[in-house]
């Protein structure tokens, strides 16, 4: 077990239950997780195991029913919605399987969104967004709207959007799920490079290949972490699947 005091993110006994009519589904059962800066973590498991719920709850996108999530020592779920949102804008990036770009915005406008949300000057935000898009290989597609881009290009815009604000951690949910193998490999290569630059990446995936790119692999089943191991050279430090110590 590593020292959680210098952890970027600590999930402590997180519980989440979905109510579907009279039925209750325990999506997360007392899950503990410690993430350090610079880690590249893959979360894998069968459908319904709680991977995406873990991502939603740990990033503050969804409420939790028990436990707590600390990001840089701050309890995310004790914050108001506005503060939690501001926290997300300041320190997190997201990549979704379905791209989820804003269709009425161009590639550069989509990419600059997090920068503008962080209060960066419009001109500077545009410059940095363009720069990030260039980095993901979309220098010539800045003014194109999502409908005018291929699936791979759209996903790269999503990556650019997730990175443009220089977040502490990027959450990716099946980032290559909608891509062909060649494009998927390009995107993963890009993510590996970014992780190499110190970015913390947490990727939910079904794809063993994607999982193999990570330094640390977490396996989930029935709302619990059943396995958590280092699979490559850890960049940011060790991990643990044991309950996090009281902070």
């Amino acid at each position: 077990m590593t020292d959680p005091t210098d952890a970027l993110l600590v999930a402590d006994c997180v519980r989440k239950t979905y109510h579907t009519g009279a039925e209750e589904v325990e999506a997360l059962r007392d899950v503990d997780l410690v993430v350090h800066d610079g880690e590249f973590i893959s979360i894998m498991g069968p459908s319904g195991s709680g991977k995406t719920t873990l991502l939603n709850c740990c990033s503050g996108l969804d409420e939790i029913d028990g436990g707590r999530v600390l990001l840089d020592g701050v309890d995310l779920h004790s914050l108001s919605d506005a503060k939690r949102t501001a926290n997300r804008a300041a320190s997190m990036g997201f990549i979704f399987q379905a791209y989820n770009l804003i269709p009425v915005f161009s590639a550069v406008e989509n990419a600059e969104l997090p920068l503008l949300l962080a209060g960066i000057d419009a001109r500077e935000a545009r410059r940095r967004a363009a720069e990030t898009l260039e980095r993901v290989g979309l220098a010539g597609r800045l003014k194109h709207r999502p409908a005018e881009l291929s699936g791979g290009e759209q996903q790269r815009v999503t990556v650019a959007r997730a990175l443009a604000g220089r977040p502490r951690v990027v959450w990716a949910d099946e980032p290559t799920g909608a891509l062909d193998s060649e494009t998927a490999e390009q995107v993963m290569q890009l993510l590996r490079e970014l992780n190499g630059d110190g970015l913390t990446l947490i990727v939910v995936t079904h794809d063993e290949g994607v999982g193999a790119s990570a330094n640390r692999a977490i396996k989930m089943r029935d709302g619990r972490i059943v396995n958590d191991e280092l699979v490559g050279g850890a960049v940011g430090g060790a991990m643990t699947s044991t309950p996090a110590p009281t902070l």
Partner: peptide
């Protein structure tokens, strides 16, 4: 709905 979800995820405040 989905786009609003993305914006909220990215840090767009409810207001």
């Amino acid at each position: 709905r989905r786009q609003v979800g993305v914006l909220r995820a990215l840090g767009f405040q409810a207001k």
